[in-house]
Design a protein around this nucleic acid. Sequence first.
DNA 1: GTTGAACTTAAAGTTAACTTTAAATTTAAC
DNA 2: GTTAAATTTAAAGTTAACTTTAAGTTCAAC
Lengths: 144, 144
Amino acid sequence: MRIGELAAQSQTPASTIRYYEQQGLLSGVQRTAGGSRRYDGSALLRLQMIRSLQNMGFALGDIPALLRDEQKAVDHERVMTTLNGRLEDIDTLLASLQRQRDQLHALRCLLESSWEAGHCLSDEQILALRDQYLQPPDSAGNQD
Amino acid sequence: MRIGELAAQSQTPASTIRYYEQQGLLSGVQRTAGGSRRYDGSALLRLQMIRSLQNMGFALGDIPALLRDEQKAVDHERVMTTLNGRLEDIDTLLASLQRQRDQLHALRCLLESSWEAGHCLSDEQILALRDQYLQPPDSAGNQD
DNA sequence: GTTGAACTTAAAGTTAACTTTAAATTTAAC
DNA sequence: GTTAAATTTAAAGTTAACTTTAAGTTCAAC
């Protein structure tokens, strides 16, 4: 199939497919005599796997190491390291988001009662809110 | 105080403080005759509030509307809209991260038993994994 | 008044994952 | 053989929140 059809079947813009190839995520793409790309079903499968791994939160740069290539076998240890690293990142992010949510709920609550009473939150109240939900000492920032 | 001291006290690089000013988050900064910035305690407070709100996940662009300015009052409705929008984003993200975590745990489990058995995961197994944890119809992507 | 640290500016660089552009070429249908 | 849609390339643009650079200026201590 041509790139347009692959794009349609994979729900991925053709420009993105070309970009993945350029980044080394898709290799061995066939060309016609004139130079246009032709794909078979395996390319669609590979694209779908790339998209799946992306949806699991992996960076494009991590994906080649996770997927078996025609050339070389998968490095089990490296896959595990990458996978466990991502799991740790997710747990950090989850904790950070829960904290953010609690802070925001508290802030909304404070604001509502302040406004009802006809005044504004003081700077101190806002800062107290922050202190109440302070990050753990290692300060897990905002990633992803 | 000079910008270096504000930087130290707020744990924020001076370049970032200048950047915030340029972006309109810090206004009314005093200058000496020679042109260097001088700050008082209120600037530190304002900076801390900006950092707090950032830690709650707000974009810099949202922050002026959330903070009371010397000039104009806070627009309650706008604050609530921004705040509720952020809460919705957080819930979407939390759901997406939980899904990612479940998928990764399942993937790790599958890989371990495959490798123990001396073979690799098939493409189909990976795709089945994806389908098992498919996103809800509206397809909540990866933000933040 | 000298000196060295701290400060000033505007502009360019960084990161990831694309998207857009422009101009040329290929393909497929007729 | 014509034509319009699809494809090709390299390079530049996009986004957010900064950081870095370079070259010049000010500050504060001595």
